[in-house]
């Protein structure tokens, strides 16, 4: 059932793109074949903290390998949605399913803070990401490879405290990637970085996502980041999905292009108009 649903959706999606972007279609097709991502099905998801109902019924299907950005005002429930998907909070009502049997290391989260162990060298910090395989003989090799993927192979024996903010976040990314996750959830991972570092991190995120084909869910307050990276942008308002926007631009995307700017503007105006209602 899950598979059927996934193909069906992907097909319509492809058809819709085919009309104006044959190149994107080819690329999509190719990625879909090699994707390791898991599809996500969310039905009637609700979550409250005390009297405060944060999520008021979320229905959402994310096809395997899609890059979804979730934007919204602070306190709209976007982070809670992400934490529920990552299994960090208990679900009050509804369901989240991944269309397959998932192992803990299939789903990884990256936070705004790098959360590295200050007393472990960079390489051992990445090895933490292997979870139970941490003690296996090829742990060093696998962690080293993940570090190389984020461009920090030469920092493997450093303490985290000597790294810059962006480098720490790249180590955190390597730690998340080392177990080859099938769903990667980002909770404002670039929020604490300066503008230039943020742009290079965005490129890195896009590259590893294209290489590995996991399903990516990015919570961000930065709409330009969302349209630059994502296939699809969800606007959450008062615990519900208010808008669901596809970003059909070909990749690699040209930063600051008229098309992206127009999209960003329209999403921003929706966010702001939602603000006016309250």
């Amino acid at each position: 059932m899950q598979t059927v649903l996934r193909t069906a959706l992907s097909e319509t999606e492809l058809a819709s793109r085919a009309s104006f972007a044959p190149q994107a279609r080819l690329e999509r097709e190719e990625r879909r074949v090699q994707t390791s991502g898991l599809p996500l099905n969310i039905r009637g998801l609700r979550k409250s903290f005390g009297d405060n109902e944060v999520l008021r019924g979320i229905d959402l299907h994310i096809p395997a390998g899609q890059f979804v950005a979730i934007v919204g005002k602070s306190g709209c429930g976007k982070s809670t949605l992400l934490r529920l998907i990552a299994g960090l909070e208990k679900i009050d009502a509804g369901s989240i399913s991944f269309g397959d049997d998932v192992l803990p290391q299939d789903i990884r989260v990256m936070f705004q803070e790098p959360r590295l162990l200050p007393w472990a060298r960079v390489l051992s910090n990445v090895e933490v990401g292997l979870g139970r395989d941490c003690a296996s003989s090829d742990a060093h090799a696998r962690a080293g490879k993940a570090l190389a993927e984020v461009g920090l192979a030469d920092k493997r024996d450093q303490w985290p405290s000597v790294l810059s903010g962006g480098q720490k976040q790249r180590v955190a990314l390597a730690r998340a990637l080392v177990s080859r996750p099938r769903v990667l959830a980002f909770d404002e991972p670039l929020g604490a970085l300066d503008a230039l570092t943020r742009i290079s991190m965005q490129r890195l995120l896009e590259r590893v996502w294209r290489d590995q084909g996991f399903t990516a869910i990015l919570v961000t307050h930065d709409v330009s980041e969302a349209v630059a990276l994502a296939d699809r942008v969800l606007v959450i308002d008062e615990g519900r999905i208010a808008h669901d926007v596809m970003v059909n631009t070909i990749r690699p995307r040209e930063r600051g292009s008229a098309e992206l700017a127009r999209l960003e503007g329209s999403i921003l105006s929706r966010l702001l108009s939602a603000d006016d209602h309250t």
Binding site: A86, L88, P104, Q105, R108, V109, F111, E113, R115, L117, W119, A120, V128, G129, G131, R132, R175
Partner: peptide, 27 residues
């Protein structure tokens, strides 16, 4: 507590969590 949550997400057992996160943090 963020490090402890991180340890749990990455599947550390109670023993590992103590050895790799809590004890070095308390040292």
């Amino acid at each position: 507590p963020q490090l402890i949550e991180m340890g749990r997400i990455y599947g550390m057992t109670d023993g590992e969590l103590f050895r790799r996160v809590i004890f070095p943090g308390a040292l």
